[in-house]
Simulated assay, not measured.
Amino acid sequence: MLAAYAARISPDSPVDALEVGQRPDPVERENWSVVQVRAASLNHHDLWSLKGVGLREDQLPMILGTDAAGIAPDGSEVIVHGVVGADGHGVGPRERRTLLSEKYDGALAEYVTVPTANLLPKPPELTFAEAACLGTAWLTAYRMLFTVADLKPGQSVLVQGAGGGVATAAIVLGAAAGLEVTATSRSGAKRERALALGARHALEPGARVPARVDAVIESVGQATWSHSVRSVKPGGTIAVCGATSGDAPGAELTRVFFQELTVRGVTMGTREELAALAAFCARSDVRPVIDSTFALADAAAGLARLAEGAQVGKIVIEP
């Protein structure tokens, strides 16, 4: 089968470590299903893997991709939940949690095999491309907003770094849920796009927010951390899912304890949350924002766009 895979580790030029070519077809195994991939989507996780973060030389070649939607063996349309080992289904109770492409081959291929319990029905209202965008970035944003921060209609949220997959999802989902969303970006075009997607305010990074917010969606790290800590209300929550600009140089602990802030790390979400997210999208006008679509053979071009940070929303790969 055709697949896009990490052929080597390249910390300084990750896209150059990607190859697209033939790989063995998935092997049938008990309690797992082989899914014909109709669409997959890219995440920064793919770039980190190519840099060698979480992926070792002795694991190569490794097919990349954590998110997909496609056709199950019984002919049904499904969404793939990319977390393996969270509850033992298909792997045993003692296996630690991993994402597809960390221990098991991922979804940037014509076929992917996953524990059968990881397959969720794809709502007919969603296209395969839209459904393939839900599994990592959108699921993480959903968990950050509604599980971790426990936000309710009428409350407020600051989304750092508008344009990325998680940030875009948080803007769209937050606006649809009746939150007052403030977004930041260095790019004027991305600030305008954030407003078009439902943000009430769009600011340059570090700019004073109109009013302190109930929660912050933080995926940028070093470049925005101090602003996040200073923008949240006393007793508020900072939900952290990444640090694309590097780790924060100072934790601002004095402000954290004095304002009684909650700082909570978030990695992905559960199958139940993915099912709830898919249902939310199906029953509303909310759809994942798709920046661009590439053929599987052109996966390197999609990853290059992701690496440049030029996208607004998700980049989809179609086998």
Rank of each mutant, 00 (worst) to 15 (best):
V289A: 03
R38E: 14
W48M: 14
T168G: 10
D247G: 05
V316S: 11
V80T: 05
R287I: 00
P124H: 14
R230V: 06
A40N: 09
V232Q: 09
I171E: 06
H45A: 15
G188N: 10
W32Q: 02
G246W: 13
A189Y: 01
G54D: 01
R305E: 14
P73C: 09
G313Y: 11
L64Q: 03
L126T: 08
V34G: 03
G265W: 15
V209G: 04
I315S: 04
L158S: 02
Q311M: 04
A183S: 02
A6W: 00
S49P: 00
L296W: 08
A196E: 11
A3R: 00
L173Y: 14
A300H: 08
V34K: 11
A183Y: 01
E77A: 15
V240C: 14
R186I: 00
P123C: 13
A275D: 07
V263G: 05
L151M: 13
A129K: 14
L203Y: 06
T66E: 11
D67Y: 12
E204Y: 06
A215N: 01
G54E: 01
E260Y: 07
S41H: 12
V232L: 07
E125A: 15
G265T: 10
V209Q: 03
R56K: 13
V15D: 00
K122H: 12
S76D: 06
A243R: 13
L151T: 08
E272S: 14
R271N: 09
